[in-house]
Design a protein around this nucleic acid. Structure first.
Lengths: 208, 208
DNA sequence: CCCCGGATTGAATCGCCGTTCAGTCACGGC
DNA sequence: GCCGTGACTGAACGGCGATTCAATCCGGGG
């Protein structure tokens, strides 16, 4: 029945398979219009084929959409990891994390992925399976923060602190700020959000 | 929680018009299933009538849903205002605000309104009109926080501080924490979220 | 009593998708 | 060349749900 499995044969060769194109297209569309308003026909159109082919690759619409969410978020974290791989000071890394989170929509590659998060949250709120995924994603994100901070501790840039509490608090703060920015709150401009996030981090970590 | 149609008039029901019943029902349903999965027929059923009557009161489905969102959130803020009306120390009031925000689902009157927020955010992200509403709501919320803090300053409980920045930061933090709690993140338990929120406030405000 | 208008309804209508199906098409292997 | 198979398609099919409509129902004012 299921054709869900990825092309098991080729070990890391063909990256831009039809399936992936569809996942990308779906992710874009979800970000733009939202989960519920994303039709199979739209995805098909964006990839330049017929709805039937989409069904050929994904058993059901839900499967496509959910997998698109996963796909997209995974890409986000991968990008984040790469950005943090290069050497930098703790301060620079924190700034990178902030900029990654508080993205003013549109701009380049890291598309308006906040549209995705909103829908992901709404979905996770009622579907345990999605909720599980989301939790894993967030844990991954907190882990990133933790590692960055620990690196700072080990390098002597800052003293010992409760890394876990900092991670939980700071990521929550970032989420909250990002929501406001994504929703164009006049009071919470991107710059202001950035300042707040960095100030808090500096204060909590005891940075210059 | 409303149940079957109460035939005769409630003794003290002020304005429990059909319209309001529908708005309440719609809000409940949205919280439970989400905007997109809330059908007119569902609302009708919950109020104990036919879909046609719903159309009689609301020109279109969207109108009903959007208005239901407004209706519900307005109720929330009103409840908040009332809670803060009674005399209390700054610390107690802050705790009240936290508890109002970080509600473990179900619980009494202020039902799982987080389901509503997620959908509201998602909707606001793409519809300017809804976004405007939402901004107003949040400004109202920040204002509440501001007034509470200012009361604390005036009463001498704490010293002067940048009230606006505190409000922006703290509400963002609350939102972020509430998201995690609403989504049952294992790392961010309700108690932990509460502690974090109150600790931050205490620190930022210079409270005991 | 009768009439009027608002409230209410059951039964259509109708458009919009998701999904299915019965095939083509292209191509590599034989 | 022929076959098999997997990619791909156009054209249905079917159901779900919003919206419409022509009636009823009912209470109150005249």
């Amino acid at each position: 029945m299921a054709r869900t499995a990825t092309p098991a044969g080729d070990p890391d060769a063909p990256v831009d398979t039809r399936r992936d194109q569809m996942l990308d297209a779906a992710a874009e569309l979800i970000a733009e219009r939202g989960l519920s308003r994303t039709r199979i026909a739209d995805v098909a159109a964006r990839v330049g084929t017929s709805p039937a082919l989409v069904m050929y690759y994904f058993a059901t619409k839900d499967e496509l959409l959910i997998e698109a969410l996963r796909h997209s978020e995974a890409g986000f974290y991968q990008a984040a990891e790469e950005l943090l791989d290069r050497p930098a000071t703790l301060g620079e890394r924190l700034a990178t994390l902030v900029d990654l989170t508080i993205t003013v929509e549109s701009q380049g590659e890291v598309r308006g992925h906040w549209g995705l998060w909103f829908d992901l949250w709404a979905e996770a709120f009622r579907h345990p399976e999605v909720a599980r995924d989301r939790r894993a994603l967030d844990e991954q994100w907190r882990d990133l923060v933790r590692r960055v901070v620990e690196a700072g501790i080990n390098s002597g840039e800052i003293g010992e602190i409760d890394v876990q509490t900092f991670a939980v608090t700071w990521t929550a703060l970032l989420d909250g700020l990002a929501v406001q920015v994504a929703l164009h709150d006049e009071v919470v401009t991107p710059e202001r959000a950035r300042d707040i996030a960095l100030d808090f981090a500096a204060g909590a970590l005891g940075l210059a």
